[in-house]
Structure formats: structure tokens, C-alpha cells
Amino acid sequence: MDYLSSLMTVCFLFATVVFYITNGEPVVPALFIFGDSIVDVGNNNKLHTVVKADFFPYGRDFVTKNPTGRMSNGKLAIDYACDFSHVIPLMNQLEFYKDCQEELVKLIGKENATSIISGAAYLLVDGSGDFAQNYFINPILQNIYTPYQFSDVLMQEYYNFIQNLYALGARKIGVTTLPPIGCMPFIITKFGYHSNKCVETINNVALDFNKKLNLTTENLIKKLPGVKLVIFDIYQPLYELIIRPSDYGTKYNYSLLINLFLCVKLIHAGFFEARKGCCGTGLLEVATLCNKISIGTCADASKYVFWDSFHPTEATNKILMDHLIPAATSLLYSNQTVR
């Protein structure tokens, strides 16, 4: 890996992404994102790994109509918040962030850099890859830990990570729960035993993790003075979307003026596929297995909950972001913790 190139990519992402309000002024001076492939906007492109998405059909519905490294057909949920991946461990990302801070001081001076660092919002999206793309397909880990013990290991890493991030100046931190990983197409294909339903034993692992996440977060809030630590629940809205896909989708309003009265007809175009992804068969394809010659790739990804066998479509990401607005508002504006 080209260290300088990777560092500058991370610093550019961190230092330039901000939330904007209606008058164009930033709510926070910067948004720093740590996590796995759910929020990777292309940092893996320069790494020697198969876990990347810088080729078609990834990105086919993005604004540029080109692959960017995002593991989706278009925008990620974080793109909607502000108009990284599993192969870069969290502690390595933290080291990149330290280097980023040093570069920021060189560019704008210590006082200005400190102001940005303390006023910035920080988002941690991690854990899905640790389970779905690591533990559940790694017999060595399974021989060492039960899934619940592995959850405890990840929780300790989370506890240490937040304390280290706090020590580096972070005060506004958002962290997402695990999604219903037992409903991912790949997981159903591998562990569903010919069923098309979510694997609830694996979803229970995610629910247990999320309970531990809440308790650990409460302990961190008590321990770290002045921290605003907000949990973003992505489990419930995504689970409801998966089990009732036709209830969600794009809504269109059509108006007709008849006899001086305005008649409004609401047409609902919901999702129709949640069992498989759009790319290829939708059952196993992800990363390099999802490519421009994958047979069976759908024409309209907006009707699918999943893009590949792990990652949501742009349409799903938009719905998830809409559900997260209250928690995001809490992180940015109020002193109240919202779950």
C-alpha cells in the first residue's frame, strides 16, 4: 500500500465532508467517518484486496454513472447525510486519523485545527463485516469463540476505540447498531438451509450485540465528560424493510383540477425483492464476484433492497438515512441522547 496516497485520501475525505443547513453554513466543521464497507466511499481502491468496488456494475446509478469504490449501485446512506472498509482495521484507521490531525495543523495552524477537531462530528459504522464476512465464515474464529463471546471482543474494541478517539479531541460521536445480518442474501444462502427467510439465530447475535452496545455506550457517557455519544439504530428500519418490502418505495403525487377541486392520487411503487441482491444471481455475489459479466443483474436496482449479497441499494440507503434524521439531529444540535 502507498502510505502517503492512502493518508491523503483519508485526510481529504475527513477534512472536506461537512453537514450543511439551508443557508449553506456548516452545522459542524467536519465529519470524520470510521468503519467498514457499508460506508467505504473508495478508500479500498488503492489497496491490494478483493474487497473493493471500483468497477462496473458498481456505481452504475451514481451521479457520475461510474464506479467510485462504493459498494452499491449508487449513493451510500452517508452520502445523503453530507452531499471508510473491513480490510483497514479500526485501530489502523485511528492511526491514519492521527496523521490527518498532524497534516491539518500544518495547513491551518494548531488553534484552527483544534477548533475543527473538537467541533467536528464523528461517525463509527462497524461490526457487520466482522460477523458476516469474517466470524461466520471463519472456522478458526468459531473454534475460539462463540458468536456471543466474539461480540464481547468487538465490544471491548469499541470501548477502547471511543476512549482513544475522545483523547484525540472528539466530542460529538455517532455509532450505528448492527443491521439484521441474518437477513443478508449471502447469509440466508449459506445458513438458511434452503429457506428464503432471515436466519433468526444470526439476527439474535446482532440483537445481543446491539444491547451490549447500548450498555457500553451508557458507561462511556458516564466516564467521558462532555462527550455526546449517540446511537443510530439501523437494525429495526432495515429489518422492517426486508420483511415488508412492498410497504416502502418511491411515492409520486399526481394532481388533477376537476370542477375547481384539487384531486390528489397517491401511487406507491414499493420494493419487490429483499431475498436476493440485484447483481448477478443476488445470492452470493459481492466485490469481484459482482462484475460487468455477472449473469442476471437486474435492470432496475431501485426495486431491490440489496445491491449485492451484502450491501444495500441506493434506494435502501436513502430510506435508512431518512430514519436516522432524529438521531443525527440529536448528535448535531441537542444535548439529549437519542436511541
Rank of each mutant, 00 (worst) to 15 (best):
L213W: 00
L207G: 13
F209Y: 13
I221K: 15
L260V: 09
Y254L: 02
Y254P: 01
I231M: 00
C263L: 11
I188K: 10
Y252K: 03
Y193K: 15
Y252M: 01
P225D: 05
Y252E: 10
Y235K: 00
I231P: 12
K228N: 15
M184L: 13
V230Y: 05
L213I: 01
D208S: 13
Y252C: 07
F209N: 14
C198A: 09
L224F: 07
V264A: 07
I243A: 09
D208A: 05
N259K: 07
A206L: 04
F186W: 05
T217I: 04
R244I: 02
F232Y: 07
F261Y: 09
Y193S: 11
V205W: 01
Y193P: 01
T216C: 08
Y239F: 15
L224H: 08
N203G: 15
L238F: 10
L220I: 08
N219I: 08
N203S: 09
R244S: 15
C263R: 06
F261I: 04
D208G: 04
D208L: 02
T217W: 09
Y193G: 05
E218D: 14
C263I: 06
V205N: 03
S246K: 13
N259Y: 15
F209Q: 11
Y235S: 00
M184Y: 10
P225C: 03
P225K: 12
L260D: 15
C263N: 14
E200F: 02
K211R: 12
G249N: 13
L238P: 12
L260G: 12
N259C: 08
D247G: 10
V264F: 09
L213D: 00
E218H: 07
T217Q: 12
K222D: 11
S246G: 02
F261W: 03
I243N: 12
E200K: 04
K222R: 10
Y252W: 04
T189E: 12
K211P: 06
D208C: 02
K251H: 10
S246V: 01
L256F: 06
Y193I: 07
I202T: 08
P237A: 04
H194P: 10
M184G: 05
P237N: 10
K190N: 12
T217K: 07
P245Y: 05
E240A: 14
G226V: 05
V264H: 06
L241T: 14
R244E: 14
Y193Q: 14
N214C: 00
L262R: 08
V230K: 03
N253E: 09
S195H: 11
C198I: 03
L224I: 15
N214S: 04
V205K: 07
V199K: 00
L213S: 02
L213M: 03
K190V: 04
N210K: 12
N214A: 02
L256V: 03
K197T: 11
D233H: 04
G249A: 11
T201H: 13
K228C: 12
S255C: 00
K197H: 15
K197G: 12
I258V: 13
V264Q: 07
I243V: 06
V227D: 13
Y248F: 15
F186S: 05
A206R: 08
K222F: 06
K190S: 03
T201I: 03
I221V: 10
P237V: 04
P245C: 13
C263M: 06
D208I: 07
L207P: 15
C198T: 01
Q236C: 11
I187A: 07
T250R: 11
V230I: 04
N253K: 06
Y235V: 00
